[in-house]
């Protein structure tokens, strides 16, 4: 599935936040790629840096955050070095994003239809009188029943699931090449979760898009993703095709995640059962392997700089003592 030149290729990305409590090293040495037509999952418990990674790619970090190293090449353009004007042409049009908590992610006092039209006007050259028709088509694409009526609705008049559909409609309005979905189903009830995931998968496949699915739920990722990138405390610990990851997890953290994931049902609280907690990313001297304090395989060798063990072309793990 991986091809010579991936759509997005992230290399050695490092990201820091300046805070009162000191420097937060939120991401370090993050590398992965997304091929054309691929759905890549980024999985890790809450706080592992998944969201800030996606914000860094779109350069919508809040002002305390700074990318201190690395490249993220998308279609030949390094997103991290691009000018702001170049980024404006990328956001929403080439790379779009949907967020957790869709109700808050939509403007509470602007009609659904207007919010869609704002995006359409920015990114398409559809004539004015056509915009409304286009907006309603977008709503129909995400299978919102009674789209014309919803066009005139405000977010507070819709259910959470419908708000997330509207977010998806906004995201795919300009037919981007890459869709980033950050915990798109968290906070929705289980049935709605499944419906929304089906919708995202369908739209991505049908429109030949690529996607990054960010989630803390490994089971959820395994249902939709071709490959999975496992993150822990700002590090990528393992990358593998979904099947290989489940068959032969190499990183102790991945193995724990899989062990903690019930296979018959997709319960969202699964990751709570991993012992220990993420290290404090503000610490002056973080261990080189940020998992070492929680790891049963820990040996003194783990205090050396992390190697990147490649098991076969597609399966790599950052660990001294892989399984």
């Amino acid at each position: 599935m991986t091809e010579a030149v991936p759509l997005l290729s992230v290399d050695n990305l490092a990201l820091e936040f300046r805070t009162r409590g000191g420097l937060v090293r939120a991401l370090e040495n993050v590398s992965f790629h997304v091929g054309t037509g691929e759905i890549v999952g980024i999985v890790g418990e809450s706080g592992s840096g998944k969201s800030v990674l996606s914000h860094a790619l779109l350069r919508i970090l809040d002002s305390a955050g700074r990318v201190s190293a690395g490249r993220a090449v998308f279609n030949g353009l390094d997103l991290l070095a691009a000018r702001e004007a170049e980024m404006r042409a990328i956001r929403g049009r080439k790379i779009a994003m949907i967020f957790q908590n869709p109700r808050a992610a939509l403007n509470p006092i602007r009609k659904i239809g207007q919010q869609l039209e704002d995006v359409l006007m920015q990114h398409t050259h559809a004539p004015r009188h056509d915009i409304k028709k286009r907006a309603i088509e977008c709503l129909e694409q995400v299978r919102i029943p009674d789209a014309l009526r919803r066009y005139h609705a405000y977010p507070f008049e819709l259910s959470g699931g419908q708000c997330q559909r509207v977010m998806i409609a906004l995201a795919i309005a300009a037919e981007p090449a890459l869709l980033i979905a950050d915990e798109p189903t968290t906070g929705l009830d289980v049935t709605t979760q499944a419906v929304v995931m089906d919708l995202i998968r369908d739209l991505v496949r049908r429109n030949h898009m690529s996607a990054i699915l960010i989630t803390h739920d490994l089971a959820l990722a395994s249902e939709s993703c071709d490959r999975i990138v496992v993150m822990h405390a700002g590090h990528v610990v393992e990358t593998a095709p979904t099947r290989a990851l489940f068959a032969t997890p190499r990183h102790p953290y991945t193995a724990r995640l899989i062990g903690a994931t019930p296979h018959d049902c997709t319960d969202v609280r699964t990751l709570a059962s991993i012992p220990g907690s993420l290290p404090d990313l503000r610490a002056a001297s973080l261990p080189l392997c940020r998992f070492s304090a929680r790891c049963e395989q820990y040996t003194s060798a783990c205090d050396q700089p992390l190697p990147l063990a490649v098991f076969n072309q597609h399966h790599s793990v950052a660990c001294h003592t892989p399984l």
């Binding site: 779109l58 919508i60 908590n101 992610a105 939509l106 704002d118």
Partner: peptide, 24 residues
């Protein structure tokens, strides 16, 4: 969050600041 959305959607700074944030 909704301002972050407008930024992620690539809306112009004018729209982000005046049509969205200011009205709210």
């Amino acid at each position: 969050d909704y301002t972050r959305t407008t930024r992620a959607m690539g809306l112009s700074r004018y729209t982000v600041v005046y049509r969205y944030a200011l009205r709210n």
